[in-house]
């Protein structure tokens, strides 16, 4: 059962009773171990220093709109990848590798918050943080603290989304059953469900259609 708070008007409650972990007995052991570990105690913060941890936490909460507990421990998952240098390897010419780019961009966020409201990003009000981030996104390919804003934005969202949407609670929110080995799927096709899948309770809640969001 989804334990993440999300209001029905914002996409919550679409798959009532859908239970991803309830299917764990049908998964192979190696996959189970990987997924179950995400539900246990989050890894300790090792890469970010305390100030960076605070800023990164506020940033990740904003990017995935996690305002209250329980939360997917996105910042711990991002930190773990950076601590282990589990990057995609590549980085843009003229931009530091991912770890350093995270540090640089977090301190740049603090600078923006300081200029905007005289405090660190993490101390700023939720709406202020939102406004600061929106301003970064609005720059598009223009520079933000010397780096094209879109590249920094993509760095943040890549890591944050990978962490969040690897979590069974997030899967429950979107109707995705997670691992499917060795069982596989037997009912494929439009509107076809497996016995353990749950149909969307609000199929017309198209986020793009006017008047529904």
């Amino acid at each position: 059962m989804s334990s993440l708070p999300l209001d029905p008007s914002a996409g919550g409650g679409r798959f009532p009773g859908f239970d991803v972990m309830g299917q764990e007995k049908h998964w192979d052991e190696v996959t189970s171990a990987v997924v179950v570990s995400r539900l246990g105690m989050p890894p300790d913060i090792r890469f970010f220093n305390a100030a960076e941890e605070a800023t990164a936490t506020a940033l990740c909460d904003q990017l995935l709109d996690q305002r209250e507990p329980p939360r997917v421990p996105v910042v711990n998952m991002v930190d773990a990848r950076l601590a282990e240098d589990q990057t995609d390897g590549w980085h843009y010419e003229g931009m530091a590798p991912d770890g350093q780019s995270w540090r640089d961009s977090l301190s740049a966020l603090d600078e923006d918050a300081m200029a905007h409201s005289g405090c660190a990003f993490a101390e700023a009000a939720w709406e202020t943080q939102t406004a600061i981030l929106q301003a970064v996104q609005d720059l598009g390919s223009e520079d933000w603290h010397g780096i094209p804003a879109s590249r920094v934005w993509s760095l943040w969202t890549r890591y944050a989304c990978t962490a969040f949407y690897s979590h069974p609670w997030a899967w429950e929110e979107i109707g995705f059953a997670g691992p499917a080995y060795p069982r596989g799927y037997k009912n494929i096709g439009v509107n076809k469900l497996e016995p353990f899948e749950v149909a969307d309770a609000h199929p017309a809640q198209d986020p793009l259609r006017k008047g529904t969001s």
Partner: peptide, 26 residues
């Protein structure tokens, strides 16, 4: 889902908008 989230984020969605959009995955 993770690759789909990248797809959705590339449209400029983030925060509440991203979560809502993602809830529509199926």
């Amino acid at each position: 889902p993770i690759t789909w989230a990248e797809h959705v984020a590339a449209q400029g969605h983030w925060g509440a908008g991203l979560r809502q959009y993602m809830s529509d995955y199926v």
